[in-house]
Amino acid sequence: MSEAGPPRPRIAISVRSGRGFLNLRLNPRRGQALEAAERILGQPMPRAANTFTAGENEVYWLGPDEWLVATGAKRVSALGSELAEALGGFHAAVNDVSGGHVELLVRGADARTVLAKGCTLDLHPREFVPGQCAQTGLGRAAVLLAAGDPSTCTIVVRRSFSGYLRRWLAYAARPRGARLPAL
């Protein structure tokens, strides 16, 4: 029997830094507000509940009249102004919520298994398919979960909960050899 080192972790938890977030609210059934926002974003907005579109930015569905736009921290201010200007004639709101959110990436073959420990949703790749997102509970925190490819999940969480969530993730992933991500 050959001497094997500790098993290589099949999960990696990291913080995606340099991100900016805009909360976008508009009535998709009134006028051309949705289309106006899409022209500025340069990508389609998700119309179906609990889905997101990825392009230059990620646009997550949060509610029937609410979206979260994730973009680069350097781009967020200009993008917010452009959106606000384009939506000026509509009953709409654009708010920069960058300061309140942290984006975490959980990657690897064990990513979904670890997340499933603290989440009531079925996170199997057959059910939670790429392009889907969901606001739900993870551990004791309210999060936005998004499925990238089958081995990658993005988590957007309130900044005040991110320390807790990173510790929770590290604890949940410890049996699988993961280390505590930098705080």
Binding site: A49, N50, P64, T120, T136, G137
Partner: peptide
């Protein structure tokens, strides 16, 4: 009505 079936703890 928007998100489908979810656990009671979310509500």
């Amino acid at each position: 009505p928007w998100c489908g079936p979810r656990a009671e703890t979310e509500f």
